[in-house]
Design a protein around this nucleic acid. Sequence first.
DNA 1: GCCAACGTTGGC
DNA 2: GCCAACGTTGGC
Length: 149
Amino acid sequence: MAHWLMKSEPDVFSYDDLVRVKREGWDGVRNYQARNFMRTMRKGDLVIFYHSNATPPGAAGIARISGEAEPDPTQFDPKSKYFDPKSSPDDPRWDWVTLAPKKRLKFVSLDTLRTIPELANCQLLARGNRLSVIPLTDDEFAAIVDAGS
DNA sequence: GCCAACGTTGGC
DNA sequence: GCCAACGTTGGC
């Protein structure tokens, strides 16, 4: 089983929102590297749900992949902010995965994440990191869960 | 294929 | 609101 970290802006969609709706298609990913990671996700993979652009930013909970990659419908919707005129249903460019809540964490702020030795090489903490879907090693995942338990 | 311009992300 | 970092676009 693989582990991941996925970012969401809590003003738009928070971990509490995921708990409330129970399942959510992860729409709006428009970055090829992030898309390619999502395509390798398998049902049951666990995900650190990270709040970005927040005060403070940090890890809010654990989610589970409940649906594997399939075309993100928002790319075909001209009214969506994620509409991509260059994509077509015959040859979809963007995928989403479906997430379900697994377990809330005691919030682990970015400041705290930076102090965790296991995360020293984690892409999340790399300078200039902007990737919204990040693979985690088993150790990295476990260290974040420990910090939030 | 290069690279400048531009848009977006995300911490602060 | 600012700004550094980075991805994408488009002219050449």
